[in-house]
Design a protein around this nucleic acid. Structure first.
Lengths: 329, 329
DNA sequence: TTGAAAGCGCTAACAT
DNA sequence: ATGTTAGCGCTTTCAA
């Protein structure tokens, strides 16, 4: 690999001059510039990013910490971040935290040692934010930001109301909610939305709450039990995986979806189109969330002003077969 | 951030000594070692990885190039790579190539400028391997390796025969195959397996080949057409997404799965458990593929000998409802 | 056993 | 407009 010295020698100039043409800073004679460029070409010279980083303390690299890339919510988010970062010539280090604040801390340490220019943090947990008091630009994604970090989330509360209301609109009156883990803020926001809407509709009934943990299997079993104990004609699941679980439970009991029980999920991940019947869901603008977070981070890195600190993106009701309007009731 | 000089000063020794205790190389007096360690602790000193990289030309970072992380086959693979690399203290830069050899080339260039210690390349395309003649350890994942790069793939040919045979075993005689893109080597291997098995069974018939492109939608439409033109009682899809497409097509025509048409997919991604009926599939050891590739790469980086250059991992038939044995025929 | 010094490849003052 | 030099933070000879 050629170095800047090689180029300088070949072009018959000093390294400073080569550096000047590389970084387009300072004055340099047209002729010399041409010579230098030719030498660069000839040697196929590419500046050593590491040396650059050491000097400039900026690595054109960011860290992206997600709980688990194999959770189907995240691939699209990660893709969006990567796409946008790529445009700005940043490279993305991917870290899976498994929601463990210890792993998160460890990664943050490593990322700093590598001089990453910024970090995007995606986590359902809170806590451990002390770790972040440490001088790297941070954007918080898919969870409310505690401190003054910029954040990007979707409207969980509103989405939950939307889902609940939709079930009501198609005729459901006994609407159950499969709740996500209670320590997950987003899940609690969705619960709040469900509760408020139900209360407003005068349908609120604690018996209709099903405890879930975001997993298909557990949701299926919990739903199976719930269906045998209580009557219900609609289920709003706190995420799509649990909606599939509910679907399987309902079908297993020989009930029809949507005729006997309508089901709606939350997130809008691709698998909702793969089930039979296809699942209605509240779709979050996943790609956009990632893209915005990335753009904000770039702005922070470049010390440009942000138009907005906290983004709450709107969600959308996606009506599919699992909540197909039934006649009158 | 404290530097090694700060530590040296505080401990009253030279930087060389500090470096010695950090890297456990060379001799150092027990007492001094203690003093140095204490100073490190007090200042919470973490060596600057960038400076280290510049000197040692090794970054404890690898590049992972995948076509598209949002394709459901890859998250688990990526997760596996990250998990293993994490154990060996490597960090992973994620790159999405979209199968474009141009993007691939560009990324490889960037990765080298960052002194990555190695690259894992996951791609269905061939070509552009010239790019790799360039001195970074490379492991090729999920595609056959052209050159002398180590590679990790699953047994596509065998898996396809297995799938075909399974359909035969449950009584199917008109077994169609939805083929993946013809430029994708793995898809062609699966096709070969299907063809050979069918020929051996004396059931081969070109009419039963359905052209797919790995996408659900296109597969659904192609299957819809095929079902109207030819009789068939079994479908072997070249991947799981297309199997879902086939499932939807069959159901849309009012036929029953598996009674009228049995369906089996390929890959074993999680969504196969989410459909109704659940899809049989040939499951690839996705996590293991990623993990092995990562371990091989580490060995190459550390210049240790590989036990094996090309890994072809076995696949497994997963029987679910979509190929539930029907009585006799 | 320890320290001094050179240098990894680059950039940015400061001179000229 | 260009060159000289110091230094980013670390590691490794080489000397002591």
């Amino acid at each position: 690999m050629a170095t800047i010295r090689d180029v300088a020698k070949l072009a018959g100039v000093s390294v400073a001059t080569v550096s000047r043409v590389l970084n387009q800073n300072g004055y340099v004679n047209e002729d010399t510039e041409k010579r230098v460029k030719k030498a660069i070409e000839q040697l196929n010279y590419k500046p050593n990013e590491v040396a650059r980083t050491l000097f400039k303390k900026t690595s054109k690299t960011i860290g992206l910490i997600v709980p688990d890339i194999s959770n189907p919510f995240f691939p699209e988010l990660v893709r969006a971040v990567e796409d946008v970062m790529n445009i700005y010539d940043y490279t993305v280090i991917l870290c899976n935290s498994d929601e463990k604040s210890e792993k998160e801390k460890q990664y943050i340490g490593i990322l700093k040692q590598k001089y990453v220019d910024g970090i995007i943090l995606t986590t359902n947990q809170l806590e451990s934010d002390e770790v972040l008091e440490l001088g790297v630009p941070v954007v918080v994604l898919d969870r409310p930001s505690m401190h003054s970090f910029p954040s990007v989330i979707a409207d969980n509360y509103g989405g939950a109301r939307l889902a609940t209301r939709h079930l009501y609109d198609i005729g459901c009156r006994k609407i159950a909610h499969i709740q996500g883990p209670t320590h997950v803020v987003n899940a609690m926001e969705r619960f709040r939305g469900y509760r408020d809407e139900m209360q407003e509709l005068g349908l609120w009934n604690e018996q209709l709450i099903i405890q879930g943990n975001y997993q298909l299997k557990q949701a299926k079993e919990a739903t199976l039990r719930a269906l045998q104990e209580h009557k219900m004609d609609g289920i709003f699941a706190g995420n799509d995986a649990m909606a599939v679980g509910a679907l399987k439970a309902v079908q297993q009991l020989g009930l029809r979806v949507p005729e006997d029980v309508a089901i709606i999920g939350y997130d809008g991940i691709p698998l909702t189109e793969m089930t039979t019947p296809e699942l209605s869901t509240i779709s979050q603008p996943i790609y956009e969330m990632g893209a915005i977070a990335a753009r904000i981070l770039v702005k922070k890195i470049e010390a440009k002003p942000l138009e907005q600190l906290h983004y709450v993106l709107p969600v959308k009701l996606v009506e599919r077969q699992s909540t197909q309007r039934r006649g009158t009731r």
